[in-house]
């Protein structure tokens, strides 16, 4: 009986988290605020549901699978939130009138100015750290990605990758 009560409370809590996501999706004004509502309460919601399942089942052998399930969600949900958020910001899918503060905007503006400068001169940027790689500077971002060693003057290359 006691377990039934616990299970019931946990499941209703989890369902309310899903409801929070739903209402947030429907009511929030722009993409990025919807994203907060959509991706985050699910972490707690899934945890509550998995706890309910564990309590109801009552076997310890189930716990590792459930932990694994939750850990997978912990690992993946920030990744998708970051990717969607970044895409949303870059493609201007947010309402700037709702922002009280935007500290990324001037950084982007400065980077855009730097890019315009770089396009005027045909020479590659001297800070690009060519000797560290040897050979031509890779342009494909996938080539530059994490496997490449970090050159001391890596900021130039890094900036280029950001703009790509």
């Amino acid at each position: 009986m006691a377990t039934d009560v616990v299970v019931a409370v946990l499941m209703i809590g989890g369902a309310l988290m899903s409801l929070a996501a739903g209402i947030g999706l429907a009511r929030f004004p722009d993409l990025l605020s919807r994203m907060h509502a959509a991706t985050k309460p699910q972490v707690l919601g899934l945890l509550l549901f998995l706890l309910a399942l564990a309590v109801e089942n009552g076997t310890w052998l189930l716990v590792p699978v459930l932990v694994l399930c939750w850990v997978f969600q912990l690992l993946t949900s920030p990744v998708s939130a970051h990717m969607v958020g970044r895409a949303g910001y870059r493609t201007r899918h947010l309402r700037r009138d709702l922002l009280t503060l935007d500290e990324l905007d001037d950084v982007v503006a400065r980077a855009a100015a730097g890019e315009a400068e770089a396009h005027e001169s045909p020479q590659p940027d001297p800070a690009a750290g060519t000797p560290a790689i040897g050979g031509p500077v890779p342009v494909d971002p996938a080539v530059v990605d994490p496997a490449a060693p970090r050159a001391p003057g890596g900021t130039g290359r890094r900036a280029r990758r950001d703009r790509a």
Binding site: G14, G45, S80
Partner: peptide, 26 residues
Amino acid sequence: PSILDRVLALDVVLAIIGAALVVNMV
């Protein structure tokens, strides 16, 4: 309005399906 909104909403749909699977198991 945008495809990103839709993919986000479908993400939530998937999470709700997961929740429903647990409810079914319980």
